[in-house]
Structures are given as structure tokens and as C-alpha cells.
């Protein structure tokens, strides 16, 4: 009888989860892009004073520090699922994957400010956009480097020579896609420094930033999902956010860890922004 009583609730949450899951799966991609850019355009109307005030607040920095300590302590001490080949290295989820999350969020912030610049023509927005992209690149490179270490102890086949196993691993679509995306953002930095006229530089690179972000979508989110991949959840959905794929115990550290690393990235960016605002104060007035 108790099982029967519980059932309606179970069915409800199950149905809710699965309808949202199916909706997400069949949600046509062009429509998604349209809505996404509409959302970004809407965001880009919010006033800049808000962001500048928030940079001096300390509560989110305290939250960042607390969550980072939680990530490091719970990340090492808490129980994790026992999986072959991965064993203890599964804890890299709290560090390696969070680097990529942080990078994606910072690049999104960067493109928001690029669109804002094109709407408002204020150089402040250009500075924001540049610094978000710069710190995003740092986190991307860290994600790549940590992935290289992790890969060489889990994916590399000990029975093959390192050359052979490298040629197997190097076919991993997510590796190639992430490399392309990062190179495009490197080119963004090179492009910025090669134009000396300030307004021209801001306008051209804002447009380039939008293109770069549009390429980030297929290279790290779509193509690796279509091709067979060594990464978990390659062809069947979203490994990090799917409730069926990631263990409950890991989710308890993983989500706070994503927030912590993202806040750390935003903190570093805010320092860089404030420094360059100080430097360019004469130009901006």
C-alpha cells in the first residue's frame, strides 16, 4: 500500500523530468539560437552602473572563497563511485570540468558585452568584453592542460606504445573542437593588438567576438555530441547536467565547485577590469 501511495508523486516528477528532457532534445537548434541571442540582447540593456557597483561588493567574494574551500576539502575527502579505469581520478571532475564551465560562462559574458558595445558605443563595454575573454582563455588553457594529464593516465592504453595510444586519443572530437575554439579566441587577442585605432578596434573585435562565440557552439557543444567520443555522455546527451549520468554524491560537490570556480574567474576579471578602467580613465572621459 505504501508503494501505491508514493506512486503518483513518482510518476509526476518522472513525467516532468522526461518531458523537459525530450523538449530539450527536440528543441530546434536555430530556434534555440534565436532565443538565446534575444536573451543576450535583452541582457545587454541592463545598466552598467549595476556591474560596477557589484565589483566592489565583498559578499560574492566571500561566497567564492567558502565554496572553493568546500570544493577542495570535500572534493578530496568525500566518497566517490568506484569505477574501473577512473578510480580516484574521478575527483578531477571538480577541477578539470569546472575549468571548462568557467570558460564558457566567461566567454558568454564577453559576448554579452561585445553586443552591448555595438549597441551603446561606450568603450567601457569594450574593456569588459576584452577582459572576460582574456580570463576565459586562461581557464580554457588550464582545462586543456589538466585534461592532458588526466587523459594520459586513463585513456592511454598501457598495452600500446605511447605513440599509438596518442593517435587514438587525439581523434577525440572534444579535444579537437576545444583546440579550435581556443585558437579562435587566441586570434581574437591577436586581432585586438593589431589595430591601433581605439574605436575601430573595439567595433571590429566586438563583431569578431560574436562570430567566435557562434563557433564555440558547434565546436564544443554540438560536434562532440554527434561523433563517437571518449568523453562520457558523448552521443547520448549531456553528461554533466543529466540527472541519470552523474552520481548524487558527486553532484553535491560538483555544482558548488562550478559556482566557486566561476566566481573566482569573475573576481580575477573584475580586478583586471578595474585596473584597465583606471589606466584608461583619461580616454573614457
Amino acid at each position: 500500500m505504501e508503494g501505491l501511495k508514493c506512486e503518483p508523486l513518482k510518476v509526476n516528477s518522472y513525467v516532468l523530468l522526461h518531458t523537459s528532457y525530450i523538449l530539450l532534445r527536440i528543441y530546434p537548434f536555430p530556434l534555440f539560437l534565436l532565443h538565446f541571442f534575444k536573451m543576450i540582447a535583452g541582457l545587454s540593456l541592463v545598466s552598467n552602473g549595476c556591474a560596477q557597483k557589484c565589483m566592489h561588493k565583498s559578499w560574492w567574494k566571500i561566497l567564492c572563497v567558502v565554496l572553493l574551500f568546500y570544493t577542495f576539502i570535500a572534493g578530496f575527502l568525500m566518497d566517490v563511485p568506484r569505477l574501473p579505469a577512473l578510480s580516484e581520478t574521478i575527483r578531477n571532475l571538480y577541477f578539470h570540468v569546472c575549468m571548462w564551465f568557467c570558460m564558457m560562462i566567461l566567454f558568454t559574458a564577453s559576448v554579452v558585452y561585445a553586443i552591448r558595445y555595438l549597441r551603446t558605443n561606450k568603450l567601457v563595454d569594450d574593456i569588459y568584453s576584452r577582459q572576460f575573454a582574456a580570463v576565459g582563455i586562461v581557464f580554457g588553457v588550464l582545462g586543456y592542460a589538466t585534461g592532458a594529464i588526466w587523459m594520459s593516465y586513463t585513456w592511454a592504453d598501457p598495452n600500446n606504445s605511447s605513440f599509438q595510444s596518442f593517435s587514438a586519443v587525439a581523434r577525440e572530437p572534444k579535444l579537437i573542437g576545444a583546440a579550435i575554439a581556443l585558437l579562435i579566441y587566441f586570434a581574437y587577442m591577436v586581432l585586438r593588438d593589431s589595430i591601433s585605432d581605439i574605436d575601430k578596434r573595439a567595433r571590429i573585435t566586438a563583431v569578431y567576438n560574436i562570430f567566435a562565440y557562434a563557433l564555440l557552439f558547434p565546436t564544443i557543444w554540438i560536434i562532440p555530441r554527434i561523433l563517437p567520443s571518449l568523453h562520457p555522455g558523448g552521443q547520448n546527451g549531456n553528461p554533466a547536467l543529466d540527472f541519470k549520468d552523474i552520481d548524487n554524491r558527486m553532484r553535491m560537490v560538483f555544482y558548488p565547485a562550478v559556482i566557486a570556480w566561476t566566481l573566482l574567474g569573475v573576481w580575477i576579471t573584475s580586478l583586471k577590469i578595474r585596473l584597465s578602467l583606471l589606466k584608461e580613465k583619461r580616454l573614457l572621459q
Binding site: M78, D79, P81, R82, L83, P84, S87, E88, R249
Partner: peptide, 11 residues
């Protein structure tokens, strides 16, 4: 959480 599964994965 307590440890519940004890299979033979080397941890």
C-alpha cells in the same frame, strides 16, 4: 553518506 558498495576497483 556512508560507503555502501565494496567492489574490487582499486581505490
Amino acid at each position: 553518506y556512508a560507503q555502501d558498495e565494496t567492489n574490487k576497483v582499486d581505490m
